[in-house]
Amino acid sequence: MSTDNALVPTTSSVMMDDGAKLHVKILGDGNGSSSKPLLISLHGAPGLSTHLEPAASYTFLSKVYRVLVYDGRGSGTSDHIGPFSHDRWIKDIETLRKFYGAEKFVLAGASYGAFLALDYAVRHGDRLDGLILRGAWANGKFGPMNALANILTSDKVKVDTERQVRLWSGNLRNDQDFEDSIMELLPFYAPPHTADIQDIPESTEFMGTVKYHSATQNYAFGVNMPQFDVRDKLQSIKAPTYVVVGRHDYVTPVSSSEEIARAIPRAKLEIFEHSGHSPPSDEPKAFEASLAKWLKAEGLPSTS
């Protein structure tokens, strides 16, 4: 198979053990059976974001990895069959790992995907060659409340207070309520002075046709987050871990990433000084170079 053909995305519908089907793309191998190592990347914003966000972030690694991206259960075009719990989503990761024939793999998670990646790592750390976390917190009781407080006191956005409380507590009324809450919030995720940064592409976080599924968001923040607290388990994560955060991220602030990086034995913290919540889209060249350097330093396949 030629190199060009190997980089063509392969789209599949993969059935989980309960019959739900997930929309999956493999970047970096035409048929999913390559000898390349596997990297699974988890998107954020459950019920809103899709595989397009991690695809934009990690396609540059598809020359050395099979980069697996997918719409999580309850998001995008994957089946909306619950529960939308961490237990169920972790089972889905395990099904995909086995389906694509990997004993071990690199797991990347962005925003909410980073919370899920952390939960996977403390449960199944022996299956990880590496862990990449972007925009994470380790305490789901504190994190959403802190994000909401930052939003309500920010001069970057003018929001409906009651609607934002519904969003961050998992009490959205319907899909339209979800859409309205996100649309008024978008500037909050961006770094300041974005026009001064020359290598920013169009936003990858909400690319494509956006579909809002409030039931997924409500379960994630109304049920999962109050139960999510891995602070006392972080030291058990033995895989090399790359913790990425933007200096101007007020959703998952620098202090949260510092807490995680201090606790994980083999963690490296990288703060992107010109980024908000998404360094891969705010500073793509710097993000790619930094990640490639870290992979090489850890003895993992790298583009550098």
Score class of each variant (00 low, 15 high):
residue 3 T to H: 12
residue 5 N to A: 12
residue 6 A to F: 08
residue 6 A to Q: 11
residue 7 L to H: 07
residue 8 V to E: 08
residue 17 D to T: 03
residue 18 D to G: 08
residue 20 A to R: 05
residue 20 A to S: 04
residue 24 V to T: 09
residue 30 G to D: 11
residue 32 G to S: 06
residue 34 S to C: 07
residue 36 K to S: 04
residue 38 L to C: 02
residue 38 L to W: 10
residue 39 L to V: 07
residue 40 I to F: 05
residue 40 I to E: 09
residue 44 G to D: 00
residue 46 P to N: 02
residue 51 H to L: 15
residue 56 A to C: 09
residue 57 S to D: 14
residue 57 S to K: 10
residue 58 Y to Q: 09
residue 59 T to Y: 12
residue 67 V to K: 06
residue 70 Y to L: 05
residue 72 G to C: 14
residue 72 G to A: 12
residue 73 R to F: 03
residue 74 G to P: 03
residue 74 G to Y: 02
residue 77 T to P: 02
residue 78 S to C: 07
residue 79 D to W: 08
residue 79 D to T: 12
residue 82 G to F: 00
residue 83 P to R: 01
residue 83 P to S: 03
residue 84 F to N: 00
residue 84 F to M: 00
residue 86 H to G: 14
residue 86 H to N: 15
residue 91 K to P: 11
residue 91 K to E: 13
residue 93 I to A: 04
residue 96 L to R: 07
residue 99 F to G: 10
residue 104 K to M: 08
residue 105 F to A: 04
residue 108 A to K: 10
residue 112 Y to D: 13
residue 122 V to A: 14
residue 122 V to F: 14
residue 123 R to Q: 13
residue 123 R to Y: 00
residue 124 H to Y: 12
residue 126 D to Q: 12
residue 130 G to P: 01
residue 132 I to D: 05
residue 133 L to H: 03
residue 134 R to A: 14
residue 135 G to C: 02
residue 138 A to C: 03
residue 139 N to P: 00
residue 144 P to L: 14
residue 145 M to L: 06
residue 146 N to T: 05
residue 149 A to S: 11
residue 151 I to T: 00
residue 155 D to H: 15
residue 156 K to F: 04
residue 162 E to L: 09
residue 167 L to R: 13
residue 167 L to W: 11
residue 173 R to Q: 10
residue 173 R to S: 07
residue 176 Q to L: 06
residue 177 D to Y: 02
residue 181 S to C: 04
residue 183 M to T: 02
residue 183 M to K: 06
residue 187 P to S: 12
residue 188 F to A: 03
residue 189 Y to V: 05
residue 189 Y to K: 04
residue 190 A to V: 12
residue 193 H to F: 05
residue 200 I to G: 05
residue 200 I to T: 02
residue 201 P to G: 06
residue 208 G to L: 12
residue 209 T to L: 10
residue 212 Y to P: 10
residue 215 A to Q: 13
residue 216 T to N: 10
residue 220 A to L: 10
residue 220 A to V: 12
residue 223 V to S: 15
residue 224 N to G: 11
residue 224 N to Q: 14
residue 226 P to M: 06
residue 229 D to L: 13
residue 232 D to H: 14
residue 242 Y to T: 08
residue 246 G to L: 08
residue 248 H to T: 06
residue 249 D to M: 08
residue 249 D to R: 09
residue 249 D to K: 10
residue 250 Y to W: 06
residue 253 P to V: 08
residue 256 S to L: 03
residue 263 A to F: 06
residue 264 I to S: 06
residue 264 I to K: 02
residue 266 R to Y: 05
residue 266 R to F: 01
residue 268 K to H: 13
residue 272 F to I: 09
residue 272 F to T: 13
residue 274 H to M: 15
residue 276 G to T: 14
residue 281 S to W: 14
residue 282 D to G: 02
residue 282 D to Y: 01
residue 287 F to N: 01
residue 288 E to K: 14
residue 292 A to C: 04
residue 294 W to H: 01
residue 299 G to R: 01
residue 299 G to H: 02
